[in-house]
Write a protein that binds this DNA or RNA. Sequence first.
DNA 1: CACTCCCGCCAATTA
DNA 2: TAATTGGCGGGAGTG
Length: 877
Amino acid sequence: ENIFERSRMAPKTPIKNEPIDLSKQKGCTPERNPITPVKIIDRPQPDPWTPTANLKMLVSAASPDMRDREKKKELFRPIENSEQSDTPDSSQYDLVDDSTIDEFEKQRPSRKQKSLGLLCQKFLARYPNYPLSTEKTTISLDEVASILGVERRRIYDIVNVLESLQLVSRVAKNQYCWHGRHNLGQTLKRLQEAGELQYGELMTFQHKEQDLEYKFGERKKETVPESQDRPLLDFSEPDCTSASANSRKDKSLRIMSQKFVMLFLVSKTKIVTLDIAAKILIEETQDTVDHSKFKTKVRRLYDIANVLTSLGLIKKVHVTEERGRKPAFKWIGPVEFSGKTDELRGHSPTSDPLPATQRGACARYQICVTGKQRFTRHSSFNSAQSCEGTRRKVSSEPNSPHQEKQDEYCSKMINLAAVCRQQIEEDTRNSSINSPFSRLPVPGDSDFCVNPLPQAVLPVVQAEMPSLSLPVGISSQASHPSTPAASKTENGKPTLVPNQPFLCFPSSSLFMLCGGLQENNLSKTLPTTGDKGNRSAEAHAAIPPALCQKRSSYKCTSPASPAEDEPAAKKQIMEQSDLPLSLVVPKKLFESSKAESTQGGGCPSTVPVETYHLDLASSAAPEAANKESTKPLDCQEQEKQSQNKDSDEPPPGNEHSFKENANQLFQPQYLYVQPTAGLSSFNLLFSANQAPGAISLASNQLPSLSVPCVMVPSAALASVPLVCSPSFASPLSPVSDGSFSAAASMNFSMSSLASTSPVFISTTTLVTPKASPTPSMDPQQPAQPALHLSPVLARSCSAVKLDSPVCVGHPVTLLKLQQPSSAPLTPKSIRPAHHEAFFKTPGSLGDPVAWKKSEGNQTRNASSVQRRLEISGTSPD
DNA sequence: CACTCCCGCCAATTA
DNA sequence: TAATTGGCGGGAGTG
């Protein structure tokens, strides 16, 4: 009896009920699995108990006081518990006896045992790394705190960091939702992208020149003209911030955590010393560098590092330098992000240093660029932060909202970064510097790429041209966000390109597309226009969903930048049509996400439609689902699937979904999308067959783009099956696709200028409007109408309308289109919002054409602001 | 003594 | 106004 009581009593401390429950549960579990504890997967809901979990539970069960002892025990027991599970209950409790335990245990509670790292491990042990997508695990702060026997404050520390990596998301007050590591890969990818933009080369030199870097950073800030930055900031902020003013959150542990992780991801060596990290982080945050601030920062970093260590993402190491040895952390998490969600960590990264030469190049490069980057970085962060502020508000809604917010946040960051980057690039460009490239070269990228030359290339490129030439480079280029290369890619004419905004397709999904394309495309030539039209239609359809998701997923826009990927892809294609793009592409994608849009300084905004991966992939999908109605669950999975499928995709069945999506799309939400954003998130789908022709393209140099593809935001995919389908094909490059591939179109358009690229995105919706109009704009593009995206689109649209049936396979698509337009005839009315929102790009301004196309009548031009307004009006948000 | 980093006050935010 | 979040830094434990 005594024992019995004890057990109960113990828990009681702070937690009244819960503890008890736990204990009970524990008991239960063990019983259940007398045999083998294994995991109890079935445990449906709320309590996913696993062997480990049991342990934890046990531990927690004890009252705080007890806990200490427990901890000690823990060390030993874990195994036992897991294995036997069983009886231990009683035994444990017994052990617990006050007297006995206390004695030796009391002492124990050393500081270590209370460490945040250990606490975090316990916390993590309670939840599965890869929870079933179906079930949502909610975390109650109070409960966890009580169970783990710590004050809430500590739990916040843990949760905030986990939240920064999207392992959890805040659902409501005191409530968090456990997501597990499914999306970790994507999150890291994004962070990496964002990190490259922001920190870029800095990390490269890290070791040697930490100080220098630091200094540089500051200089840069000073040096750089703020004016440029400002715009960016403003830009971004409005969206995000509008809602909330950031401020305090800037320093938030969450943000610090993300930045910290970014440093690792960007670092070649994967080792970051605390002081450097602190310096960098302080910088961003603010100016003053008080010693005290530094100290505080370091303290926080320790907090973060402890959690990350528990996650197995980093480990503590020491770096010895001239001055002595410094505490540092080494990234031991995944280095390459397949794009897929789950990541495994695996390789520990060794640092493979670049060849000296390269290094040198990089370093130099850095120097030049750095300043700019800094700015960028700076601004971006701010914006991000601001966005974040919003997030907290949350609410009541469970799941989705929160995540969305997060996603947004991320996306915003990315976007910002992209924007910044663009600016920088431009600046650089102006200055004659090559900087843009620098990024590209990032070591990491090289890895991804198949290319042989990766790094080296980059540097080189800078020197001369960005462009095309680099075979290998391509991939690298792709990776790089900004790069001019893209521009070049298109024709080789740098000129044109440079400013144009591109669409980015960040996600891996692209790959798939490409691969398919090539094959098909290559062989095939251009499809007929009609096809194009159809395709385009499809594309549109596809897009919408994406948009929808986006919208749903985040408020702000994101970012995305235009995608450079495409260009890269194109290039590849051009260069080597035969090659399987896929390889290359993929990487690019990532990077591409960064892509920027236009350079035009002023207008960063291109509007790319981008979605962010993050959201999409992971959270977004689900969210979308929720919102939409359709199937929430699987979104993610679907996405994946869809991606995988690639070309195939979309079967007719999807239609419905599309439609729905489309509708949703309409909503203004899109607006959020920042102008800048690229499409990053979209995925292109190509049908295998489709339009091969596109590739060939021809006329333009870049044929590739044309590939018929559908761009779909990943998220969208998830929710929707995609669209795409098969048919798309985009005809030729330019044309139809244009929409999609911004790049392709871009070329053409570029010339014209405007960067329109973004347009594509608009996809379907857009289409309508255009229909009639069609062409006016196109002209530019020579080769095919495509270019003009707009025209093309228009065409496609029109075609669709007309032909839609043609589209063949995709009736669905058509449907969608129509629907949206509801009044098919005049899409405008309806569309406008959408279109604009997505597509608009401020930057694009220049090119009326392109935009117009998308805009059709509407709004294209509307300034970003306008868009927003519109959106707001329409959209619920 | 230098690192780490626990602890918890208390302000900012939210409910 | 009460509760929740979470910045912050004093200062203690560790090696």
